[in-house]
Amino acid sequence: MGGGEGERGLVDTLSKKDFTTDQEVRWCPGCGDYAILSAVQGFLPELGVEPHKTVFVSGIGCSGRFTYYVDTYGVHGIHGRAPAIATGIATARPDLSVWVVTGDGDGLSIGGNHLIHALRRNVNIKILMFNNQIYGLTKGQYSPTSEEGKVTKSTPFGSVDHPFNPIAVALGAEATFVARTIDNDRQHLTEVLRQAAAHRGTAFVEIYQNCNVFNDGAFDLLRDKPQGSRSQIRLEHGEPILFDDDMRCVAVGDNGRLIVANVDDVSPDSIVVHDVHGRPSLAFALAHLSHGPTEPTCIGVFREFGRPVYGDAMEDQMRRATERLGKGDLSGLLHSGDTWTVR
């Protein structure tokens, strides 16, 4: 009972202030990052993990500054490499709570390789990818999530690149936790963070984030209050996928493809019931339901399942080797194999 009380006591005493540094926050006024920061700082006390047992790792881009504002241990790394650095930290120290903050350019372009391999390994880290569909810090070039035809400084005639679907990328890398949320929906964002933190292994959370300077309004369809909620398809485990005040739904159409339909136009049996532990095909289909945030789009947890956590497996191998061979004896190692003695 005593231990439990101690834990409870900690949760009660930690507050948002404990996770807030004295550094002046320097994003552009109105940037979606402020809301995310505030939501994260507000949520962390609830985890009951003290700031000194928490590490935030970020890359380069506007999202990279995040580390400086959260009063925990932090590494502001280099472009795209945060998942690699975090892999080192989390694998070396399973006792720490390790978070990665990245962006669409950082995580999916220059750091794409590290991202997919962290997901594949299932390192115990929580990855928050702020997707604003633009390069903000470098002042407005198209990103790997920008839509085709996007006119930016580097694409004056429109982008000819096909964008990544970050959720599909994460699912393809067999991430064990894949979710999407929106910067200004504090309640939904906090709930997704809660589930991500509770997950053992890598959690991938895409956060639609408005860059009001270089890509304002990219997510307005989903984000505008109160209208936006009408286009958010909220995924709830075990619930039929209904949205727009339950007037519309996700249903199985002809050929087994998922479609967005009016509830009145489809048979109740064809309405999809969400299952986060289900087959990857369902999560993939939901990820591809819209072509981007300009159509009704799914938010919430797409998929969650259990797989051995990378650090656990490594610790396990070391434990078994030590059981079998005894704790490493340096002198024994140096003398192993053929030796001879000169007197």
Binding site: A84, I85, N113, H114
Partner: peptide, 17 residues
């Protein structure tokens, strides 16, 4: 690691830890 860069990053992360 998945590549040379990651190998260095992982070692550096471990050093930080």
């Amino acid at each position: 690691a998945e590549d040379e860069i990651a190998a260095a990053g992982i070692a550096l992360g471990a050093a930080f830890a």
